[in-house]
């Protein structure tokens, strides 16, 4: 794997195509989150919004792809994010991760990663961290 598994190592960023309304509809079904604020323009408008916006969990799922692209799913110990900004429809997220530290916990070498999702205009929408076992 190309990743440098030492503190300061960066994962290769994962760039996501602009989020479409179709993606939000599919994600509502796939994720079980049927909150109409994400898929029904009428409901969004009734709450004073200009348009629907993406589920926060969609971006968290994209960011999880960055994790599983680099580490087998069974090695992910924890994964936490803070949702810092709404992702508008057609937003184009980029997922990035940096290894903050590597240490040994319960006899297991683990890396702690700092994670972000940013949009093309520079807005950070998610910030978080994950702990993964290295071996």
């Amino acid at each position: 794997m190309a990743t440098a598994l030492d503190a300061g190592g960066e994962l290769e960023p994962l760039t996501i195509p602009p989020i479409s309304r179709t993606t939000l509809a599919l994600f509502a079904g796939g994720s079980g989150d049927h909150n109409p604020i994400h898929i029904d323009l009428d409901v969004a408008a009734s709450a004073g919004l200009d348009d629907v916006f993406a589920h926060g969990m969609l971006s968290m799922a994209y960011l999880a792809r960055l994790l599983t692209d680099n580490f087998p799913v069974e090695r992910i110990r924890s994964y936490t994010v803070r949702f810092a900004a709404i992702t508008p429809i057609h937003g184009q997220p980029t997922c990035a991760g940096t290894i903050r530290q590597v240490d040994t916990v319960d006899g297991e070498r683990r890396a702690t990663l700092d994670l972000t999702v940013t949009l093309a205009d520079g807005t950070t929408t998610l910030a978080g961290e994950a702990v993964v076992a290295l071996s």
Binding site: H55, G56, M57, M60, I76, R77, S78, Y79, T80, V81, R82, F83, I86
Partner: peptide
């Protein structure tokens, strides 16, 4: 709004 989400596996 969703503020934070954490998973422990």
């Amino acid at each position: 709004l969703h503020g934070e989400q954490a998973f422990v596996y």
